[in-house]
Amino acid sequence: MRLGPHLRYGLPLLVFAALAALLWQGLGRDPRLVPSPLVGKPAPAFSLPSLREPSRVVGTDDLRGRVALLNVWASWCTACRQEHPLLMRVAREEKVPIYGLNYKDRREDALRWLDGLGDPYVWSAHDLEGRVGIDWGVYGVPETFVIDRRGVIRYKHIGPIDERAWRERIAPLLAELRREEAAP
């Protein structure tokens, strides 16, 4: 029952080596990113007043039947300004509709933002209280959800989308989902 001396004295080194390897792995990660449990689940239902026409109710039902993006944004969010040109380009050039969830924002501020910078959204829902944001597990604006035609969330991007994220993650996923869509 006795460990050999080499093992006995070498054991701390082995444990440390394993630990160091794991720490090395951990270095490359961003501790702020929290994966969403909503991926693979149906998009949470909501109905909110439209930002532009407060009397019109918009919601999850509008998203059904097509692959779509839902982008959570606010005029007070500086990172949103960063991804905005990309959203504008996508709205112009790609076939995917972008819906907006305007999160905890004053209507006037939000509209001024859209009028000044351009409006990439089919519509923006006005989530003044942030209640829908909670249902969607939003914790940092901007966030973007990719939703398939059956209304299931397939991917969530946290933070501003840059060209690389679009090219490497979102565009390929959209293409794949569209193939699914085309198939019977």
Binding site: P5, H6, R8, Y9, G10, P12, L13, F16, A17, A20
Partner: peptide, 14 residues
């Protein structure tokens, strides 16, 4: 620092 000293310990600790 730690790996080096533990290696030394593995070799010389006995």
């Amino acid at each position: 620092v730690v790996g080096g000293s533990l290696l030394l310990y593995a070799l010389r600790g006995e």
